[in-house]
């Protein structure tokens, strides 16, 4: 294809991506360098029958004028990145030198919002991803063995958790495990404890969220594995049968090695998706004990009156850096493959 034709074909989609993906990323970076204006103060004299007092208050007019003039706020450099709500180097250092033992330090550590979110996001990702791969693989093997007639409906029911938006999926589960729902009340009866609630403890909330994550993502892994299973060559399997390998051995020594690259692909995609975990936290109303990076950004922006653009932007940049680290292996892999084919 000629350069000129290519250009005209690509132009619309490139404009869309540059305007609404590339420029926003630059915009986030710029925003993260600024911070809200300090509110200018003014001395007001308040007089009452007992005399006059001078009081310091916010000069609303001057503040509005300042915002008008510099809507982004004042320049703050990289300060936002290291403040208490983000990397918090100072607090970490103080916590390290002031605490007597590791336990004391870890309580300081987990009270810093960024590290709290980091811990949850990583725990979530590291637990959900392997389980998703295992469950998806077993599902694909089992469903592949079904007769053609019932395969269709089974696949449909299997992918239901994936196609529902996470907010709704988590709500549907939340209503069941709530103290007033079917699972929640059954658990209370089983343990004979009317106050037992999944919301009450941090550990239980995390387990719930992780279970939800597996439930939501396993169908994706299933579909990819299922498709890949159709491409497994028949000859080695037949050879294995002749050599006397049973089903388990055939899976262990023929199918799994063939599917390994696919598993790597699923792992990376599912990690990318898990690291942005956000909607389940809202759906399960788990904000108090589980916070992710996406939730931190949302929290900075959700109140339309006071939006912390700077803080949200700094968290966004840090998130992007994390995603970038995760993405590097995929990029290198794609790069090599393309190099071979082109």
């Amino acid at each position: 294809m000629k350069h000129k034709t290519f250009f005209w074909f690509m132009l619309p989609t490139c404009i869309a991506m540059v305007l609404f993906i590339a420029i926003p990323i630059v915009s986030i970076f710029v925003q993260s360098l600024f911070i809200e204006h300090q509110k200018p103060t003014i001395e007001i004299e308040i007089c009452d029958p007992f005399g006059c007092k001078k009081e310091v208050g916010v000069d609303i007019e001057a503040y509005a004028a300042l915002n008008e003039e510099q809507p982004l706020g004042r320049f703050n450099g990289l300060e936002t990145y290291i403040d208490r709500n983000h990397l918090a180097f100072k607090e970490l250092y103080e916590g390290w030198s002031n605490s007597k033992n590791f336990r004391e330090f870890s309580s300081t550590f987990f009270n810093l919002p960024f590290y709290k979110a980091l811990t949850f996001t990583l725990t979530y990702t590291l637990f959900v991803t392997p389980f998703v791969i295992c469950l998806g693989f077993i599902l694909a093997l089992s469903i592949n063995a079904l007769t053609l007639k019932i395969k269709g409906p089974t696949i449909f029911a299997t992918i239901l958790p994936m196609i529902v938006t996470p907010l709704m999926g988590s709500l549907v589960l939340f209503w069941m495990i709530d103290a007033e729902g079917i699972i929640g009340s059954t658990i209370q009866d089983l343990f004979n404890d009317p106050y037992l609630s999944l919301k009450a403890s941090t550990t239980l909330t995390w387990i719930t969220l992780i279970t939800y994550g597996i439930w939501h993502h396993a169908p994706f892994a299933f579909i990819v594995f299922y498709a890949a299973l159709q491409t497994v060559p028949q000859e080695p399997i037949e050879a294995a049968i002749i050599d006397g390998a049973d089903r388990i051995q055939r899976i262990r020594y023929v199918v799994i090695p063939h599917l390994l690259p696919v598993a790597v692909f699923i792992a990376l995609i599912s990690m990318m998706d898990n690291i942005r975990v956000f909607e389940p936290i809202l759906g399960f109303s788990a904000e108090a004990s589980a916070q992710s990076f996406s939730w931190l950004i949302y929290n900075d922006l959700r109140n339309i009156e006071v939006m912390n653009f700077g803080s949200a932007a700094a968290t966004s940049i840090l998130t992007i850096i994390m995603v970038g680290i995760l993405l590097t292996p995929v990029l290198i892999k794609t790069w090599r493959e393309f190099g071979e084919t082109r």
Partner: peptide, 30 residues
Amino acid sequence: SPYRYAFWILITALVFRAMPHITLVSGYLF
């Protein structure tokens, strides 16, 4: 397209695909 830049566009698209939506939203709002 047999040229190298088509490949670059695809790689860029892959990077863009990985961006969490909320980070982009925080770039749009202002």
